[in-house]
Amino acid sequence: MSKIIIGRYLPGSTFVYRVDPRAKLLTTFYFIIMIFLATNWQGYLAITIFGLAAVVATGLKAKVFWDGVKPMIWLILFTALMQTFFMAGGTTYWHWWIFTLSSEGIINGIYVFLRFSLIILVSTVMTVTTKPLEIADAMEWILKPLKLFKVNVGMISLVISIALRFVPTLFDQTVKIMNAQRSRGADFNDGGLIKRAKSVVPMLVPLFIDSLEVALDLSTAMESRGYKGSEGRTRYRILTWSKVDLVPLFYCIILTILMVTTRML
């Protein structure tokens, strides 16, 4: 149980893995903005091809991405169907009470479906190929301008990295406490919602006390190792741009040109 993976990172070796996490994070944001530039079928075709290209480039099985979309599939279908049946325009094929099935409606339903699915797909490309720690580093880099507003970015990033580092530790502790409670007859799986929620309390209290103890120990250890606050520290782990990062850059440029030209059609 101790080898729990936080986030959904899957090890791999394609070039997507070697792209700097900052580039991946920015490209993901940029791609999502670009999706909203698509207004016609040419635009959606272009963005879909680009989205699928990113998916294929990860070299991972399709199931990984299906697992990403699956939890959201009902929400996506519901929204797409709302668009289909409530939007009128073009040729009307069918009409009953407040529901209308029209050519415009069908096309819009498909667009909404594509928009949602693409957003989830490209975010999945990002999260499965980037370690949580790398994402945290990338976020820190993006937050850097906040230093101008006296935000202590160095401390925020240390907090995030320590939090990520202690997730498996606290998870192990939870399992230990659960087993200890089980061995004394606690039941975490039976009963209604309220009964189950109640059975979590005797687990949370020791976990909470334990994490306070960890925090105290850790602060003692950090202080004895010379931690005086985040000012005036150097960094061991740094991100460096490489040639591979030109790929997402060109990807974004070509995508922008395509999206702008298809809008003009």
Partner: peptide, 16 residues
Amino acid sequence: FVGATVSDDVAFGLEN
């Protein structure tokens, strides 16, 4: 263990 990996942890005192 402060760092996210072995090397990061060893580097902690040096970073400080």
